[in-house]
Structure formats: C-alpha cells, structure tokens
Design a protein around this nucleic acid. Sequence first.
RNA 1: GCCGGAGUGGCGGAAUCGGCAGACGCGUCGGUCUCAAACACCGAUGAGCGCAAGCUCGUGUGGGUUCGACCCCCACCUCCGGCACCA
Length: 861
Amino acid sequence: MTTRTAGEPRTGRGERFDPGSYEQKWRDRWEADGLYRTQDDDSRPRRYVLTMYPYPSGDLHIGHWYPAAPSDAIARMHRMQGDNVLFPMGFDSFGLPAENAAIDRGIHPAKWTAENIARMRQQFRSIGTMFDWDREVVTSDPSYYRWTQWLFLQFYRAGLAYRAMAPVDWCPKDQVVLAREQVEGADRHCWRCRTPVVKRDLEQWFFRITKYADEMLSFRGLDWPEPIRLMQTNWIGRSEGAEVDFAVEAPGAEPIRVFTTRPDTVFGATFMVLAPEHPAVAALTTDEQRAAVDDYVATARRQTEIERMSTDREKTGVFIGAHAINPMTSERIPIWIADYVLPGYGTGAIMAVPAHDERDYAFAEKFDLPIRYVVTPPGGDPPRGQPLVEHTADEVLVDSGQFSGMPASEAIGAITRHLADAGLGKAAVSYKIRDWLVSRQRYWGAPIPIVYCPEHGAQPVPEDQLPVLLPEDVDFAPTGVSPLQSHEAFLRASCPVCGADARRETDTMDTFVDSSWYFLRYCSPHDDKRAWDPDAVARWMPVDVYVGGAEHAVLHLLYARFFVKALRDMGMLSFDEPWIVLRNQGQILGADHHRMSKSRGNVVNPDDLSARYGSDTVRLFLMFIGPWDQGGPWNPTGIEGVHRFLGRVWQLAQADASGDVRVAEVAGMPPAPSITGEIPGSQGPNGSQLLGTVEELQRALRRETHATIAAVSDDYAGFRWNTAVAKLMELSNAIGRARDAGIAGTAVYAEAVDTLLLLLAPAAPHIAEELWERRGHDYSIHTETWPEADPALAVADTIELPVQVDGKLRDRLVVTRDTPADEIERLALASEHVQRYLNGQPPRRVIQVPGKLVNVVTGAR
RNA sequence: GCCGGAGUGGCGGAAUCGGCAGACGCGUCGGUCUCAAACACCGAUGAGCGCAAGCUCGUGUGGGUUCGACCCCCACCUCCGGCACCA
C-alpha cells in the first residue's frame, strides 16, 4: 500500500488507484470539520433521513451495510441539493443478547453493550457514513430510558397502559413473555430463539394499541411499500359483522353474545360453540357433563399453542349439557366448547353455521350435529357434502322465514337491523390485533416505573424520581421471574400516596417501547429536562425518509405509529405518522442462499472486503448487486467489476488534469476529420465507434453527460441503486471513448468528468472527494451543488428508428429528430429489407410511434 | 388454505402508459503486454442454421387480445415472504 503525504506532487498519471491511501484521510477531515453536524438552520429546506438503528450485537455485518450505504447516499444527495439534512444514528441497546452474554460469559450487560457499541460506531465510521454522531442515542443509557419511563407514565395516565391478568405467550427458553407480534409461524415459536411458546396466566402490563386499530388502517399521505401496508392491514384484521345475543335455556342464565361476519346465516345456526376459557362455561355445564368438560378445559389449557392452533388437526370439543335458543328460528341448539374458538377474538363464542363455514362443518360432521343450508345459488340446489362459504353477488337465502328469497348481500343488513330492532343484536366490528404486552421478566431493559402499595395498589413513580435506575449487582440466572425480584435494595420503595413501604415493579419494558420514540429523541438528544424539545420536533418531524427492514412490518413499524398517534392525542405531538416515505431493503443471504449466521459459517465480513478494496467499492457493489428492495444471495464475483470501474474513473479524472491526453496511445483511432455517412456513436466496422468530427464527438459526450444527470438523480431518489450505478458506468465508458478519441483537455471533457464525480459522490464519497481535489476544485465535493440536467442538451439530434414488417425487426432508419411522418414512411417503404417482404404489393397499413418505431403491416395475414 | 412478491442468456440483472429483449457488470473465449503467470487493456459472447447476405427460435407453461405482448386478459406450474381454526 502506498501512502501519499500532503506535499507530494499530484502527477495523476501513473499513480496507482489505491483507496487505502486516501479514504481514512478524508473521513478524518470530514469529521474534524464537522461536515455532518446538523445545525438547526432554518434557512434551508429541512430533511430528516433516518435509517433503523441496530441492536449492538458486536459487529457490523454486511446486512448492516446494505441499508446503511444507500441511506447515506440519499442523505448526501439531499445535502448537495441544498437541504439541511438530519441523518442520525444510535443503538437499540437494551435486550436479551446482552443478558445472555452475562449469563454465558460473566460479562455485565452494560459492559458488553458498551464494548459492542464502541466497535460498531467505529465500523460505521469506516464506511464513510455522514451520521451526525453528536446526536447519538443509546437506549440503555439512563439519560434515555428515564424518558422511556416517563412516557410509560404518560400512557398510564392517559389510560393507555394497564395491568391485566391474561393468558400470555411464554417462551420457556428465554424465560420471558412475548407480545403477540413476537410469536411467529404455524408452530407458534419465539421470534428470537424459535422455541415453541406456551400459554401462561400472568398479570402483565399492556399498551392499549387496539384503541388505534381503525386509525392505523389508514395510510393516507404515506408513501410506504404496498406489502408493508397490506401486512399491517391484515395484522389489524378488521372484520365487519354483528353481535347477536342467544338466550340460554337455564334458570337465571344471562344470554350469550356471539360475533359473526355472516348475520345472513343466523337461520342456519344449529349449535353454539364457546371457547373453553369462556366465563359462562362453569355456570352452564350440567352435572352429567361436568367431568368431561372439566377434563377438556384442563387439557386445552395444558396444550401448547402448536397443538392447539394447528389448522389441519381434527376438531375436538365437548357438549356442556346446556342449550341456547336461536333468536330467528326459536329452536333449541346445544352449547359445546371447543378449542377452535379462540377466547381473545370477538366474544369468545360463536353461533355455529356448519352449512356455511368450513370449521363448523368439520365440527358438525365429527359430532353428528345438524347441517342446514340457508343460502343457495339462485335456481341451484344447495350443495351437499361441503359447506357453501363464498359470497357471490347472486346468492339468495332459503329456509330463512321472511328473509327467504332475499339476496344474501342484502340479508346481512336486513337481518342485522331486524335483530337490533328486537334488542337481540347490533352491527359490530372486530379486530384481530390485541393489546401490546410490554412487560418482560428480564433484567436488561427499562424498569417499569410502578410501585405496589399494600394499601393503594399499583402507583406510578413520581416523575421527579425518574429514572428508576437498573441496579448493577444482580444475579442473572434466569428463573422465570425478573432478576430484579431478588434484589432487595431495588425492591424497596415507598408508596407515593401514603409513604408506606411498597414493593417496586420488577418487570422491564419490551425493547420495542424504546424504539417507538427514538426518532423523536434525535431531534434534541441532549435535552435533560424533557423527552424532547417541542420546537426541535416541530422542526424535524415527521421523518421524511425511513430506511429499514421489512421484518419489522407488524412490530416496530406498527408500534411506533401507535406511539405517535397516542402522543398526539395527549397533545404532545402535532402530526399523525412518524415517517412519510418508507423504503425496505431486501435481505442479503449467504452464498448458500440461507440466512447469514455464524453457525452456518456463511457470514460475509465487510471489514475484510473494505480493507482489500476500499469502502467505496463495497458500498457501490452493494448497490449494484441487484434490485435493492429484493436482496438475494451474496455473490462476491462482481465486486472486481465495481472496483475496476472506480479504477477507470481514477484514470479518466486525471487524464486531463496534467495534460495527460492519451490520444497518442490509441493506435489507429485518429479523430476523423469529417462525417462520412456514418453517424456519431454508431457502430462502424471493426467496432470502431468514433467516426465524426470533434464537434460531433463533443456534442455526443455532452448529451450523455446531461442524460446521465437526469437519469441518475431519478434513480437515486427512487432507490434504484443498481441502475444508477449502471448509468454511472455508462457515462464513464463514454468518457473513456471520448478520451481515446482525443478530446480530453476540452471543456466538454472536464464537464463530463466533474459531473461524473458529483453524481458519484453520494455513493462513493471518498474517491469523489479525492479526485475532486486532484482536479483542482475546492473542498468539499459533498457541499457542492448537485448538477442540473439541461434537457436541450440531453436529446440527440438524430435518432435511429427500428423498422418492423408485421412486428418483426427488418431494418433501421437514421433520421433527424424533426423528420416528418410522411417522409419517415417513404424512407421505410423504400428500404430494400422492407421491399423484400412486400412482394410488390402496397402495405395494408403503416403504423408509426413517433420517435420510437415504424411498423409496416402487409396484407400477408 | 388465505394475502403479497417474483420467474428474462452460463450468472446477477436491464427494459413495462403495449413499441429495437438482454443495458450495466460477472463469467467464458480470442488477442495485446510478459521469459511465463497474475494484473491491466482491446475484441467477441442468447440459442440454432448459413461461406455470406441473412433466416428461424427465444422472457416459467398453455391459451387469448393486438399491426405489435417480458408487459394486458384467462387457466396453470415453481420459488420467496407474510398470515394461519380470527367465526
């Protein structure tokens, strides 16, 4: 590796392209100059570019670079376009891995986390990202989690945080409860360790996210990827239908309310099913059925989610001995319990309509319960042997009293109204989303700021006593309860109401609480009086562009929306959504097409790559590798090509700086003195491409330069990194041809090279800066003005029109842009290649797409 | 099962308001440089046929619409992601 000292002459020519000789120098200088420190400067348009902060797991891997490099590029581009850009970074540093490291290796989580952050911060710097490190946020720092706790208290006061006993998902390996969003897959496993979860009844803290279910269905004003919007929409899972009360045939029994999306099928409800957990079960069960019911309920409780939720499992259930009355038919229908009815959805009870529901049908078949079809296709017989579940427009009701003959779509409303008029039901909406379970029985998180008084129950810690500090000296061995529970000093507290001895809450908060507001903290990260400075938040929020992984679709990306809406309703924010534009990167897989993991040994270490090629090459390669939102398996072979491209840029940018016009080296390619029937840029014999006058060559290079400005600006803004890089390569190829033709040293050549460097600067910041300086320009290229395309220069004066005969390409016409259509038609028909297919006949039609093509249609077909 | 996304050369991928398929790069082959190799540079490179001019085929499969289809419609197949007994 060569190093160049400051006083050394810049010879351009002959000096080897060696990123190692300048990359660190520029990073140091940018940092020393505070080039990326964001001022609250309101004279320029403000732009908040945010990339998801990482969990400090130890090392930045290629999966961190993949979103970071384009985020940095977009931030740099906006800066060059004149915006005041906020582009911060921090660490989501609470969480289980730190605690596990403590358990496995005896390192305190705080120490482990601090070391990892130091290393990752350094790695982020080595990429050349323009993060404003003065605004760094570390969520495990008391100066941050103090405000996380404060926010918990605000939610508590607003009635959005509550404590409830509920059956919750428990990960037996991590010894912790999980939010519903953290339980994945058909086998109901823990999102982190993939261990199947079990149900436990525990008293836990919840955030009332369901209050915002409806509002979160609206994405108005947001530019988000459609798949994410759909995932959130499905997760929220809004269903419209009706709640219907079924009287119960037992002395003094309350009616049972069911939820249905098909009130048009009430006449077909031939039995009722309750979730085993339904509160009415105990009271309604008859003595004869008691033993069987108790047994079934106990079994259901013991079962893991896997066993219970598996969809292809045989239906099970028990008759409880009681009967309900169908409100439309007045028939007695038996009440069963079955675990296919979920306690947490709707009312935990259903009217079973086996003729029109797959699950009820399977249940009825198994237990020999009556099946009555009440909806049928018009004029058709009701199907037999299977349920009729689809709603099509033209189904009608049968066997449904006064509603028989009514179209099913109409009957939904009509029957709902009928029931409502009778006081037996009402239209209702149900959601799949559940409240967010936020308590965790682990140490490394923000303590929930609550104390329990024997007299006054749960009481919020007074705000002036925040933060509730995590003690350092705890025993980390997982026992199923928080390690804090065995820490006497931590537990000891006094009741804020009466001052009596009280016990402190020992659960900590889900780390997704931390990440639900970190983007607000970046706006005023050092404010020690408030969670954020309202002026700073008003200045920067909402985030203009948010970059991160789609794996957070129904986690972080949902929770943070809830936070913003809740805080808005508390009067603390004046906007509705945290992020306007959202872009998701794809996932980089290992070369073996599997998720990168240490255990598989397929992890790519970016540090090795950047040591070898320089970080510009790695950044650019990650952008070039394929569609950025698609990701894909890692394939390192192309990185050499990107490196060669930068090497060519290195040479081209210095070809004119020191009189190094290399025309003499290009044998057999003198600039032709005049045009000879060939047009500039067209393929000549022997692949020579440079016939034409010097003026024509220059015009062609200018055209390429200005077309590239427009195209690359567009591609960057649209996150089409791969095609942006391809277009930069094309421009450099054009510059190379121009140099070989001898126009290096001209103003047009200089404009092309400078433009190339400016366009390259966001993506490959170091080489752009180095070459900018070597070309004699002022520091820094990153504060230069983004080039503007001149549309007049970007269009070619002659165009090549493909000529088709019956849709097949037969010839090409070279014409000036303003050639009239009838002249083009005349030229096309005159072509011998076209004549051959016309066989002397006149064409049936000639179709012209202006500027695009000519198609001659023969009468042959 | 339901909801998304995607199938294009040897490979990663370009090109979609319906208009030259294969940009850009990798790889491969040939060449220059070298004692030799590596690097670098130059050229060729979808398949097939042909001495050539040129012709035929070709964007997962089968149909269709159109002067013209990778693009639109119908019916399928495969892969990836999400959800999963939500009444």
